[in-house]
Amino acid sequence: MSKTHVTAKVNGDAVEFLCDPRETLLDVLRDRLGLTGAKEGCGTGDCGACSVTVDGRLVCSCLMLGVEAEGKEIGTVEGIADGETLHPLQKKFIEYAALQCGICTPGILIAAKSLLEKNPDPTETEVRYWLAGNLCRCTGYDKIIRAVMDTAAEMREAS
């Protein structure tokens, strides 16, 4: 079976890879590019652990083929800190204990960042519905929602 050559950008860096058309973007990120921050929790778009952005749009990387990444800008959890400076969401998630096992954390951070870029002042309900596609089994979401709300407040003050 022949493979397709794909050129894309991941977290600002140019990448190229060969992939089978059946491979998902998640497979490519994890197995071909060595970026294992995005996780596979279900492979069917139900859990959100594989969340990334594609040209700024939040998607499940398990629901996109690697070949579709041609010419796209991909954003993953590995790219959200600025050098050694963590993104405010990353700091707050640690501070609030908004993670226990941490498997859902990369996807939730990507999704929450995408929310705050679109809506800097979300209500609790808006945060909950925006993150409804990111399953967390450890926390009951309580500390996650609080961390996102407080990050939003802090980022509003800072801007």
Binding site: S51, R57, L58, C60, L63, M64, S114, G133
Partner: peptide, 9 residues
């Protein structure tokens, strides 16, 4: 339909 992520696609 689906999640925010699914809505993107």
């Amino acid at each position: 339909i689906g999640s925010t992520q699914v809505q993107g696609r």
